[in-house]
Amino acid sequence: MNILAIETTGAAASVALINEKGEVSVEISDQKMNHLQNLMPMIDILLKKRELSIDDIGCVAVSEGPGSFTGIRIGVASARAIAQALEIKTIGAPTLKSFLYHANDYKGIICPIFDARRNQVYSGAYQWIRDEHPGKSKNESPCRKEVQASYRELVIGDAYDLPQLLEKLKTILLKESNVSTALEITFFGDGIISYKEQIIDWQNASLNDNIRVLFANDKIRLQNASSVARLALEYYRQGRMKSLYDLKPVYMRKAEAERKLEEKS
């Protein structure tokens, strides 16, 4: 069983394949915002590299958003059409949550921020939960490692005004820093470009010295289909596949015209 994962919510499109063993291969576009043109050729290249055909795909996953509205639609439309033609199920992978798989072994808080303009970001905060009592279950059942990965969602993925997000993070970080001695938060996403300085100011003004604020380096900063594929595999193991008709884009924001119309009335 192979899952095809599509990521078109950011500037660079990527596609990935993952099998049930969790082996991933990925193809990343070197062009920006040219998703419609490049997506199918990239899928073709990826399949050929793995010596597979599209008919070997058992499930198609897509990074469902948030992100570029146009990008989300290219991904969802393509995933749905592939599923419709192959008569297979789909998986909608929350884009923000996929960043957990950018940093599998990371103990700190993972916080993707996407520039949503109007001084807003699409963001959420996540953290892997490690087994704190290794003696308890480690050798009892060797299958345990295969059981679903566990993480917590500290800030629910949504559109936030930046100060509102930072306030939420501050509350969480200050609470957590009493429990653990050294606490880290790493920001990901294209929002770093616009908001890095504001975040550093916030750190200096509101956080304790034992909280470290980091920014992911360029190589792992942005959306990537390999993380989407890993998250999709987790969903697959949990049986969270859905019909293509239930695969919906997650914009997290109304269309501008709709918002203005509602404001008027």
Binding site: L36, M40, S78, A85
Partner: peptide, 11 residues
Amino acid sequence: LATAKSMAYVL
């Protein structure tokens, strides 16, 4: 276009 391209490729 995204729909047509995907279907043409699969079929």
